Simulated scan of single mutants.
Amino acid sequence: MRRSLWLVAFGLVLGLSIPLLYGGSGLFQRLATFPLSLLGVVLTMIFVGWNFNAGRLRLMLSGIGQPMAHGRALATVMATEFAFCATPAGSGGPLTYVFLLRRHGVPGSDGAALYALDVLMDMLFFTTALLVIALALFIQPEQLRAGWQLALLAGLLMSVMALAWLAARHHRSALLWGGKHLRKWRVSPAARRRLARMLLRFRQGLRLTLGLSRARLLAIYVLCVGHWLMRYSILYVLIVGLDRHISWAYSFLIQMLALTAGQFSMLPGGSGGVELSFTALLAPVLDHATLGAVLLMWRFTTYYWYLIAGAPVFALFAGKALWQHPGNGAPKKAGEKVGV
């Protein structure tokens, strides 16, 4: 736990230093011109987005016979977002999600499958959004400077989706390939068996969730679209609030690229990588002071606020046990063996 806190603290210092150094003294003058009422609007957008996610979690759970109250679903979403932001590469997000669903009575394999369905819905949205943005770029040729960014993101998404499809389609071969390499890495036979059982249960659970009715899946996707439109409109609103103009489509691409690049920093929240990528992409469009102010407010609303608002919820619902030992604390059914 102490190491995680040090990583979060280091990431915060690094992330704050970049906009402050880049924006210089003019940054605070630009911040003073930003309407506080608009900041309230942005934070409200985040809260609405959390509720969209809580709604789709409830739809998924009721579809497998595990209904959940909206307040608890919202707490699950906020705690998961906090864990995602507070751990390197977001590794704590899925663990927290599955852990909290197990406390609700959902088997671990089904919880992992629900998380996978959540991710698939996200990927479907981003794929659709990139197609729409590509059409917009052809309609407005003056914005073709974003073409390479669009191509890069499309390539990443297609690669991830192709790997996921191949793993699901040829799961036996994937298990054999994984087992072969795990033996080379001297992973114990017991650990390999547990991993294989977990993957098989996950696949069964994924088939269960994908068996939901089309109407329910469509409703889940609509809520997914609502969440991401809220979250990815924040940068556009912040820039407009500082009396600057940028197309919504270009702001969408900037956020996708910056957040993707941030994952390679291996720091909580992608600190350092996100800020540097964001600065490089917006430098041709905004002056130093405005860019520094926008970056600071964007990271506050889409990262620091997730830590501030999510920390007490995580502490209340997940607790210290999960932070220290992600595998502990989840309830087990009668007769269930540890690690099976």
Results as ranks from 00 to 15, higher is better:
residue 73 A to Y: 00
residue 246 I to Y: 07
residue 241 G to K: 01
residue 170 H to N: 07
residue 227 H to T: 10
residue 41 V to T: 01
residue 53 N to P: 15
residue 18 I to Y: 03
residue 16 L to V: 06
residue 171 H to N: 12
residue 149 Q to M: 13
residue 190 A to W: 12
residue 34 F to W: 00
residue 24 G to S: 10
residue 119 V to L: 15
residue 32 A to S: 12
residue 276 L to R: 06
residue 109 S to V: 06
residue 234 I to D: 11
residue 123 M to W: 11
residue 106 V to T: 03
residue 75 A to C: 03
residue 170 H to L: 02
residue 8 V to N: 03
residue 112 A to S: 11
residue 185 W to F: 14
residue 193 R to G: 04
residue 138 F to M: 15
residue 27 L to T: 00
residue 51 N to G: 14
residue 251 S to Q: 11
residue 23 G to Y: 01
residue 177 W to H: 07
residue 153 L to M: 15
residue 339 G to A: 08
residue 118 D to Y: 14
residue 322 L to A: 08
residue 186 R to G: 07
residue 97 Y to T: 10
residue 95 L to Y: 09
residue 40 G to E: 01
residue 269 G to W: 00
residue 208 L to R: 12
residue 244 R to E: 04
residue 205 G to D: 01
residue 261 A to S: 03
residue 327 G to T: 06
residue 107 P to K: 01
residue 258 A to G: 01
residue 197 R to H: 08
residue 85 C to K: 03
residue 334 A to W: 09
residue 210 L to S: 13
residue 144 L to W: 04
residue 104 H to I: 05
residue 220 I to A: 13
residue 3 R to K: 14
residue 189 P to N: 04
residue 156 L to W: 15
residue 63 G to F: 01
residue 16 L to G: 15
residue 315 A to R: 11
residue 257 L to K: 00
residue 124 L to Y: 14
residue 180 K to D: 11
residue 168 A to Q: 14
residue 146 A to F: 13
residue 228 W to C: 01
residue 275 E to Q: 01
residue 271 S to Q: 08
residue 253 L to R: 03
residue 184 K to H: 12
residue 84 F to S: 08
residue 43 L to Y: 09
residue 91 S to M: 05
residue 325 H to T: 07
residue 322 L to D: 08
residue 325 H to Q: 12
residue 204 Q to E: 11
residue 305 W to V: 07
residue 275 E to G: 04
residue 339 G to L: 07
residue 102 R to P: 12
residue 17 S to D: 12
residue 267 L to D: 01
residue 336 E to N: 02
residue 295 L to P: 06
residue 324 Q to V: 01
residue 282 L to I: 00
residue 62 S to W: 11
residue 249 A to F: 08
residue 222 V to P: 02
residue 157 L to D: 05
residue 55 G to H: 05
residue 324 Q to G: 15
residue 193 R to Q: 14
residue 102 R to M: 09
residue 304 Y to P: 03
residue 207 R to N: 15
residue 40 G to K: 09
residue 207 R to H: 14
residue 17 S to Y: 13
residue 69 A to I: 15
residue 47 F to C: 13
residue 186 R to D: 07
residue 331 P to G: 06
residue 289 A to Y: 05
residue 258 A to S: 01
residue 282 L to Q: 12
residue 326 P to L: 02
residue 105 G to K: 04
residue 242 L to I: 04
residue 197 R to I: 12
residue 6 W to Y: 15
residue 195 L to T: 12
residue 330 A to R: 05
residue 20 L to Y: 05
residue 88 P to W: 06
residue 260 T to S: 15
residue 222 V to W: 02
residue 7 L to P: 11
residue 294 V to M: 07
residue 101 L to P: 00
residue 240 V to K: 06
residue 316 L to M: 15
residue 180 K to V: 13
residue 134 A to P: 15
residue 253 L to Y: 11
residue 109 S to G: 13
residue 151 A to H: 11
residue 7 L to G: 10
residue 240 V to H: 12
residue 171 H to A: 13
residue 204 Q to L: 10
residue 141 P to D: 12
residue 24 G to T: 05
residue 154 A to W: 14
